[in-house]
């Protein structure tokens, strides 16, 4: 289930408009109308982006207020970015080990030349 949610979040984050919406919501709540005005897109387009972000758990919409403002689910987004930086650490960890190996090879080559 966790992996499926990650897949959904990645798919949601793959679109530049949706990332833009998240950046905007990071500053505060906004209604669909606010976003329509801000992004110069039609209301159905914004609504479909909102639906994708909502089903990925990246935003939520208030049930009470009439305009149903959108709110960033920062915790969910942090989970995704945290996971991504973890994977990057794996790459960097590998490369750090390669750095050490290369330093060793360089030293061995130097000593070989001295002989």
């Amino acid at each position: 289930m966790y992996m499926k949610q990650l897949d959904q979040a990645f798919a949601a984050l793959a679109d530049p408009t949706r990332r833009g919406i998240l950046v905007h919501l990071a500053r505060g709540e906004a209604t669909v109308n606010d976003l329509v005005a801000l992004f110069h897109l039609t209301q159905p387009t914004i609504s479909s982006h909102i639906k994708v972000l909502e089903s990925a758990g990246l935003i939520s919409r208030s049930r009470q207020a009439q305009m149903r403002p959108c709110k960033l689910e920062a915790k969910r987004l942090q989970e995704v970015t945290k996971w991504l930086s973890k994977v990057q650490e794996v790459w960097e960890g590998k490369y750090t080990r390669l750095d050490a190996l290369l330093a060793e090879l360089k030293q061995a080559q130097k000593e070989e030349r001295k002989k």
Partner: peptide, 11 residues
């Protein structure tokens, strides 16, 4: 593998 984009970082 990893797909960290600049935009994720700016977020």
């Amino acid at each position: 593998t990893d797909g960290m984009e600049m935009s994720y970082q700016s977020l």
